[in-house]
Nucleic acid binder design. Sequence first.
RNA 1: GAUCGCGUAGCUCAGUCGGUAGAGCAACGGACUUUUAAUCCGGUGGUCCUGGGUUCGAGUCCCAGCGCGAUCACCA
Length: 512
Amino acid sequence: MGPNMTSETNNQTESPTDPTQDPGYESQLLADRLAKLEQMRDELGVNPYGQRVDGLEPIAEARAKYVEDAEGDDRAVVQIAGRVMLHRDNGKLQWLQLRDMTGDIQIAASRKDVQTDTGFEIARLADLGDLLVVEGPVMKTRTGEITVWASDVNIACKTLALPPEKFKGLQDAELRYRRRYVDMYVNPEVCATLAARSRLISMMRSFMNERGFLEVETPILQTQAGGAAARPFLTHMNALDLDLSLRIAPELFLKRLLVGGMNRVYEIGRNFRNEGVDRSHNPEFTAIEVYEAFGNYLTMLELTESMLRHLALAMAPDSGIIEFDGQPLNYAEPFRQVTYGDLFEEANGFAMTDFDRVRQRATELGMTNAATLDDWLLVNQVWEATVEEQLIQPTFVMDYPSAISPLTRPKPDNPALCDRWELMVHGMELGTAYTELNDPAVQEAKFRQQLKGADQEEQTYRTFDEDFLNALRVGMPPAGGLGLGVDRIIMLMTGSRTIRDVIPFPFMRPET
RNA sequence: GAUCGCGUAGCUCAGUCGGUAGAGCAACGGACUUUUAAUCCGGUGGUCCUGGGUUCGAGUCCCAGCGCGAUCACCA
């Protein structure tokens, strides 16, 4: 096609990316593709945006249908659809490589062997990134490549975009996350990870359901966001002229369900926290919270360990060992259980209750608030600096200090500690579980204490949930409660080093 | 929010001491019926992130801003 045709095509186009509005190079490339699209319509009478196709099979299954040494009618005939990854125009013989989510396969379209009038021409005009439907027998070329020798080729959708570099693909991290739909087909491991996420979450649901837990959904729009210490996102309801928050945790509603008599509940859903973004934090993240009446933090421990082992054995059936960042993590062996205090002493050489030495150690570690901070908060700061990143294999850190666990029941024999654990894997906090507080008087005192300690800014998002206290006065059974970061579990199970890789559309600043 | 690094063609990347903007792939025209990142021939393609400054001259040096990444902080 010559320049005349190109300009004609331009004049017919009224899309927002109309090349006539911007005669740059990029729109020239777009114009070339639009011209090809019109050529399909005008010269071949083919709709470049396709139609319904029945009887398609995944490319991986089509490959599996290859029969060694089969000739002629003995060859399996398949019908597949996929995106064009490579195109080698050899004149009267067109070589294409098609990809779908299950894999790649080579296509050969020979002018002599394609049975339809338009099939060969469609193959000849194919651009990288087009979606094609191909039918034909599965055979092997003389170099041993499994190939569909096309009897028919149809266009399912013409691409107007320029595909990334065909060998190195899409590398730029920003572009990969902003144009995830390109990243997904160019880098097959992206789809594989997201598919694994889907399967893993499905397994978590089955696991919980089989244990007799009911899946529930509680409000995301809340008049006050409670259940965790975090800043919420604020929004507004016009109809009622009401300021609302997006939930930071479902905890207080799930406990209300315990009060009402649903003794085993869980929720898998999104929480929203108005905080920073890094490789293990997205502002909206998926968590699973579980409440079990007449359980405690130890029943939650057993449940958590069993569930993670179940998931790991699904990913690595032989060993239950999954590598993360170069280190094999073993989920098959019983997880280590060690107290918070023992870990502190192990790392620092003295007891965490020796507050003078804690303060001294904090100063050595260069903590600028070492002189003024509350004793237990300082203990926790030193703990996080000296212990946390050493916990590589799955480890339950038991018996947290009560002072840093505001919603937890203190241990009867040692009120400074409480029935709470945190699960650490590869230095990452995977979640926490409590023996839940069900004494309304103690809960009320803890709410007040939290408000008292909060500064001006924190005051605006710390909650005093009167209705929740009413619920506790009605009476909540003793219970174990659990919260786990689902995205982080998926990271560990799929070996993804950043949370963004396990979220289909991770948060990005808007493009300027 | 803080510090450091990065930002060059659609994509992947070079660009020396401050002296005319480069390659590969893609895209475009042509040849080819067993190719494997096909090959061969021909001709294209740039807001060097944005805005200032220094200079005879800035992709390059300086300042500010934007975006991304890493580390830290907050948090899970």
